[in-house]
């Protein structure tokens, strides 16, 4: 029994690791294409049909490029920082139920690596640790731009973790559990049961905080090239830089799964669409939304970021929690 469990877990880990590494690569291709179309360009066209092998070419380039470590850098920490980003991005996926249960040859597979009853907190916490990657990279590089990027990482992490936690608190109060499977089961039975209708404010707040935690465009202050060259990644090259990249895209998928599971009905069947395909559609919509926002919106200044977090989002989140509590108490 235990051996079977361990083999199953290892297989799941390998599948998740391989699948999401490949998906992260594919997401870069999709991002470049979609961004190009939105800017009236064609994007990559030369490598393979419609440039689809561009990912492969980029991968070869990243692997064969020199792994450069500057003289003034703190070597061990400089080397370990990108690994933290990539590793935590994949560890966070351990507690996410990706699909409904299915059966292969009489053996029921639960597509979740570790079914813990605090899955939501685990995912958010581990994603939070992911920001140690940029922080350590910036501080160990011995470069002023990197240091600025690291400082921005610290403030962004400390601020938006608050918003994430508070905005998720209201749905947690309604469902009464921290397990993502419970969240999914709570919303079974059609679009009307989705939590987004009960908690629209929490949904928007969580989405905004998700943009900040994955450092996507409106909040990509950590590596905004017009201000701080490349931020924490200034001194990185080759596969170490690529690990940062994979981590960022894996985090995008994680946030996509989280939002779909918490607010948009998870992997329940949607009308005639089976659950597995429904959640994939939702996740890919959110990936598209990340890219879409990048094509549409400028990024904010650091002081605007702090203003938005502490003077707008956090008060709204607290009020939302209080109102949810009052409503739950009296109705």
């Amino acid at each position: 029994m235990e051996t079977a469990f361990i083999i199953e877990t290892i297989v799941k880990i390998l599948v998740v690791l391989g699948l999401f590494s490949a998906l992260a690569g594919f997401a870069t291709y999709v991002e470049r294409k979609v961004l190009a179309f939105m800017q009236r360009r064609l994007g990559p066209m030369h490598v393979g049909p419609y440039g689809i092998l561009q990912v492969l070419a980029d991968g070869i380039k990243l692997f064969t490029k020199e792994d450069f470590i500057p003289q003034g850098a703190v070597r061990p920490i400089f080397m370990i920082a990108p690994v933290i980003t990539a590793a935590t991005a994949f560890i966070a996926m351990a507690a996410i139920p990706m699909f409904p249960e299915f059966t292969i040859g009489g053996y029921t597979v639960r597509p979740i690596i570790s079914d813990m009853n605090v899955g939501l907190l685990f995912v958010l916490g581990v994603m939070g640790i992911g920001l140690y990657g940029p922080l350590l990279a910036g501080m160990a590089s011995g470069n002023k731009w990197s240091l600025l990027g690291a400082a921005r990482t610290a403030i962004q992490f400390l601020s938006y973790e608050v918003v994430t936690g508070l905005s998720v608190l209201a749905p947690v109060m309604i469902v009464g559990s921290l397990s993502l499977i419970d969240f999914n089961n709570y919303q079974a039975g059609g679009v009307g049961n989705w939590l987004v209708w009960k908690q629209p404010i929490a949904f928007i707040l969580f989405l905004i905080a998700g943009f900040a935690e994955t450092n996507r465009t409106p909040f990509d202050l950590l590596e905004h090239e017009a201000e701080v060259i490349s931020g924490y990644a200034t001194e990185y090259s080759g596969m170490r830089w690529g690990l940062f990249f994979i981590g960022e895209y894996a985090n995008m998928f994680t946030i996509g799964f989280l939002v779909s599971l918490i607010f948009l009905g998870g992997f329940n069947d949607l009308w005639f669409i089976p659950g597995a395909i429904a959640i994939l559609l939702k996740v890919f919509f959110f990936i598209f939304l990340f890219i879409w926002a990048r094509a549409s919106w400028p990024h904010v200044r650091p002081d605007q970021l702090m203003w938005l977090c502490w003077k707008v989002l956090m008060p709204i989140a607290v009020v939302n929690v209080v109102i949810t509590g009052i409503v739950m108490m009296f109705f």
Binding site: V118, L121, G125, A154
Partner: peptide, 20 residues
């Protein structure tokens, strides 16, 4: 599990402030 996750969340934030 709960305490473990809280340990991660609380201390990653606290040490981040130390870094700052």
């Amino acid at each position: 599990d709960f305490l473990g996750v809280v340990q991660i969340i609380v201390y990653s934030g606290a040490v981040m402030a130390l870094y700052a």
